[in-house]
Design a protein around this nucleic acid. Structure first.
Lengths: 343, 343
DNA sequence: AGGTTACATTGCAGCGCTGCAAAGGACTAT
DNA sequence: ATAGTCCTTTGCAGCGCTGCAATGTAACCT
């Protein structure tokens, strides 16, 4: 059996193709009798609508694209897991694009590329793109930005309050009695805005507690992964005056840092407490479990998708908004010795 | 400016729409003069072809879908990185689908779902699907299977020689003088075929060296990740007679196992040697670097894409073939003490 | 020169569906 | 009985492109 079309169904059901279309789309008022006939015909023929034709006729692709720097970074993988069902529910298929954080690749995607027809809108987590670059985009592209690139007023931005979250993380370290606190993950250059916000929180928590900040304990990294954490931790522990706690800008960094500490025979958290950021699944199962800042990924996904749908649906330009999802401090074994319940 | 169409370009260039189409597609013989005119018009109008319309007219979607159980598993992420460019080069866009290893989800994808129109073919790495399930698929779907589900003759299968690779891995452990070798990752049930092949290699290497296999050293796991490795290693080290080497069925498992060993104050590889499988990037940068079996991911990707293109292009049913990509043993620090060059 | 070949270019029809607006039919109000 | 109202169903045209086969024209052959 070849594929049957709307017309075939219409013929078999004895109605017009348009009516079949109405039934298929749950449109308008269709009498139960008609609906029954059509549905029976659909079942008999095994008809399924041709998405391609539908999209061409409707002038949309029915797909959105989610652009992330790295696919194998658990945080993005988990975020995608939240975005995909949200988009499906809204009737959209999700394309995934990995950019490796490459500026040109990202720029091409938000520009007027030929692939533009494949998606109706984009959710992007930029890495290489600077604030200025973002404004050079195709203005006709409905866009929602994740992470830390505040909106220029023409697109939406969804994120958590990084400064507040970071402040909480460091405040937690102070609360458990640590005084020499290091930070791993600063990125003191234009595209490192996300990192800089965390550094601001780091400072803010110190200020609030009346503690001085030892600038030499703020370690920069180019990425946020295990190796970076391990390397930075090695440098910290090689010092004559190592820290007694570390605030890592991602759970992967924390994981690498803990690994190094353990390898050196240090106890975590007794000798050195570690807190991460992102609340990735791995951190909930390792030993020790990793204390972290848990962004509400589901909320981020839903906000992003909802805004994007709105933008896609609207003909007028929509002013950009800043949306904040919730976050929670999750104390676990890497900062507490008496944690029984984890998760 | 709204989007301009083929017709607009044709009008401006003073040729027929069909000629513009020919130029755009690099088709047929077009005189340089005509091509020049058309290209100039395209540039002036900023024309880009509407992929949707093209696909509808051509009766294809221009997309293939790659189905993997987990997106955040580095092996799959890296494989995807190889597949995507290969598919793009062949003029196809890649959709990515994660199934969580869920049988029903996988079954739906290879069946006659409504999303079928979104892709012309599928590359799937099944996990929940049994051999029998695979044969229940939509026969009209061009399909290439990765991993260990040998072809039933109607689809292609691309993989490496798991038995041979596993044998090499264990032979390596024997060659460096180990005699009590454990295996972590067996899955003695129908969908665990991949794991079972590795266990076969494990046995084969023992047999070839005239060593007995201690069955109690073969540890089963449900998945292949860090936590599984850590848990299994804990069990092994708690024994009165712990092994002096471990063959892990993935690098993630190896990573978890090494983590546990180090945490217990053991030296790797001196006290216990560990070898993994997959050659993921993380294993090349950790401490110690992880010895592993490196499947030629690029070759796997290229073979899979090439076969799929062939299937898509062919109208006749194509008999399924078994394709083997190369693999290499990569000795690194976790099995050798004097390794200087890693990679 | 007449006929053939070769090639660049074109026209037609339609992929399968939807937007729009009108037609048809049943029913109510006067 | 006639006009008006409401709701279901329909027809038309076309989204932008390509497959196919045909057209026209220039170059070639004998």
């Amino acid at each position: 059996m070849g594929e049957s079309t709307l017309r075939d169904v219409a013929e078999l059901a004895g109605v017009s193709p348009r009516t079949v279309s109405n039934v298929v789309n749950g449109y308008a008022r269709v009498t139960d009798a008609t609906r029954g006939k059509v549905e029976r015909a659909i079942a008999v023929l095994g008809y399924r609508p041709n998405v391609l034709a539908r999209n061409l006729a409707a002038g949309r692709s029915g797909q959105i694209v989610v652009v992330v720097p790295y696919l194998d970074t658990p945080y993005f993988a988990e975020l995608l897991q939240a975005i995909i069902p949200a988009a499906r529910k809204a009737g959209y298929n999700v394309l995934i694009d990995q950019t490796d954080g490459d500026r040109d690749h990202e720029a091409e995607l938000i520009g007027r590329g030929p692939r533009r027809f494949l998606f109706d809108g984009m959710i992007i987590s930029p890495l290489g793109l600077s604030q200025a670059d973002l404004s050079l985009r195709d203005p006709a592209l409905p866009l929602v930005v994740l992470g830390e690139r505040p909106s220029d007023g023409t697109f939406d931005h969804v994120g958590i309050d990084d400064v507040a979250a970071s402040t909480e993380a460091v405040r937690h370290l102070i609360a458990i009695g640590r005084r020499r606190i290091a930070a791993i993950g600063d990125q003191p250059y234009p595209t490192g805005e996300a990192a800089q916000l965390r550094t601001r929180g780091f400072r803010a928590a110190h200020a609030a507690a009346g503690l001085p900040v030892d600038e030499s304990l703020i370690i920069s990294t180019t990425r946020f992964n295990r190796v970076d954490g391990a390397t930075a931790m090695t440098a910290l522990l090689d010092r004559p005056d190592p820290p007694d706690a570390v605030f890592c800008y991602s759970d992967l960094v924390a994981s690498g840092a803990i690994h190094t500490a353990l390898q050196r025979g240090l106890r975590v958290p007794e000798d050195i407490a570690v807190i991460g950021y992102d609340d990735i699944e791995d951190g909930r199962y390792g030993r020790p479990t990793i204390s972290t800042i848990s962004p509400d990924k589901k909320a981020i996904a839903q906000l992003a998708v909802a805004r994007l749908m709105m933008r896609i649906g609207s003909t007028e330009p929509v002013p950009g908004v800043e949306l904040r999802a919730a976050h929670r401090l999750m104390p676990r074994q890497s900062t507490l010795t008496d944690v029984s319940a984890t998760s």
